[in-house]
Amino acid sequence: MSPASVLDVVLAAAVLAVALVAVLLPSRRGAVSAFLVLGVVLAVLWARLDAPDIALAEAALGSGVAGALLMDTLTADPARPGRRAGRTAVVVGLLAGAVALAALTVVVRAVPDEPSLLPAAVAEEIHGAGADHAVTAVLLNFRSLDTLLEAAVLVFAAAGAGALVRTPVRAPDPVPAPVTALARVLLPALVLLGTWLLLAGTSRPGGAFQAGAMFAGALVVAFVAGARFAASQGTAARAWTVAGVLAFVALAAGTAMLGQGWLVLDPRWAGAAVLTVETVLAVSIGVGLAQVFVANSEARRVPS
């Protein structure tokens, strides 16, 4: 076996092992901690699969923002005694799982080892698409409707989580000094990193979603450190949350009214349009994810 395939096998085993640990640990804390580790291992797997964009996103979202959300759930409630599923259910579940896995393993052996139609199509059309980096071109031009709707999913998830908060936001508690100190260092670093990912995204891996996750991280840190602006669920915060979707729809409607067709970007200004939409989207995603975090935090802090 070559060193490369040893690495592949070890990596595959690691992913499976961490996934098993994450679902098997009976305590919440253990499960969440193992899930954070899964995010790290997955980021490595994505890197190994030639997908640096996804490695970035996994590091930022999968183990970053989602990790912070899950961890915050743990600090909110003391661990609860876990009820267990009945023995019959476990046996049936395991059997069904084994059968499903065997069937799927047979199925995926039939996957043809040849590329799909799309990489060639992307390579052919990427000039004038507004971004030299293929993944960004797909997200912001070829399949821009998906990206718009995905931003909308975030907007409405934030609205839904926000609707669960039925109490006004409480004044922040006193913050421990180490947290404030850490936040002072971390905040500018996160914003800088996010901006870099945003600007880099048109020509190399990176883009609105990774940058947005960094901005969300910055806002979460600010919120945790007691900054009032980050705790707000007011009109301005909600306006920023929806700004990305509205900017995207405005672009779509604008191109339609100009007679080019919905979301059709003219190669002459496609680059500018892509960067503008990405910038608004990144800020919007950042605020939106942070709003989900704040809503979660407030859903717990109901005054007694």
């Binding site: 997908a51 996804i54 799909s116 799309l118 990489p119 992307v122 993944v135 071109a137 997200l139 399949r143």
Partner: peptide, 8 residues
Amino acid sequence: EPDPVAQA
């Protein structure tokens, strides 16, 4: 080459 569409 990696498939950018699947990655997206």
